[in-house]
Design a protein around this nucleic acid. Sequence first.
DNA 1: AACACGGCCAACCGCCTGAAT
DNA 2: CATTCAGGCGGTTGGCCGTGT
Length: 347
Amino acid sequence: MGRSPCCEKNGLKKGPWTAEEDQKLIDYIQKNGYGNWRTLPKNAGLQRCGKSCRLRWTNYLRPDIKRGRFSFEEEETIIQLHSVLGNKWSAIAARLPGRTDNEIKNYWNTHIRKRLLRMGIDPVTHNPRLDLLDISTILSSSFYNQSNSNMFGVQPMVNPELLRLAASLLSSQRDQNPSFLHQNDQKHQFGQTLIQENHNLQLQSHDQTLIQEIPSCVPFSSDQSTQLMEPNVDQIPSSFSHFNPQNCQLNEWENNGMVLASSNLDNFIAMENYGFQSVVDPASNLTPNDFDFTSHLSNLSTPSSSPTPLNSNSNSTNYINGSSTEDEREISYCSNLFKYEYQEIFM
DNA sequence: AACACGGCCAACCGCCTGAAT
DNA sequence: CATTCAGGCGGTTGGCCGTGT
């Protein structure tokens, strides 16, 4: 009649392993190998059940385990495999040498899953989240259209599908060439691809088949909007024709807005082409970390207000009037609804 | 300094499958 | 063939730790 029980449940230790227990397990396996987990604890002098020993060994003590943070390549591999295999952690782990299924599962649940959600991607289906699209429809048909949707004369469109495409484009570029982001010609090529894709999607939108119009600007009051100035495109040097992701920072604003800051003027052009609109130019040569966006945005309702630099050494100059150092200006963007992390897509 | 909170991760739990009896 | 269990797997938990208030 079947096998006998592997162990008595009573009297066996549970909980965290001590260094002494670890050493006993390591010594035993180094001397005798593993395989019969049923008898191993007793032979090794451990008050644990075989299952606990097996887990401890396979998830922690095994000598070929790679510790530490997951690399970008590993993360990309996990995402790609998960899109095919789903929650088959052991199958995914089999393709990542030195990583355990438990480690990958934990990393997925604590990092990757949340990141995909922030990017508007369903971590189960790996498709854009439909709930966001529903919200965007509501927003675009209600307060946004009633306020100042045309504050810059252009109704911007930001499409989750395009953002997803951007992420995958970047991933594939990175896969092919890890130093992609440090090469200007490739950055330029990537930017051009985005611009072309944005153009294509806008063309498709005329057929009302694919794209949904989504508000990309927080609905300021009319008083606030009058102070928002559209950057003078004529003052943008022609040399700034490609995207540079350096020194970017995303800040959430209130409940439904986000502000993108960059100290590089190239980003302005790329983001403009990408469908975001500029809201204000802090007009200084501060780095993003030196700038207090919350304070600055709250000052928009006060006509005489000016950006609030945290760095008193800044040499503040007005971008709109055009006299600052072009590539060190702060450009901020404001976009409604989307919580995509800019860095996650472009950096 | 004390407390609350949230992120992280090692470990456990429960289920499934296939092998042993 | 029926029963039982080892091993494997995915889901969940609980405690530690860092950070914010």
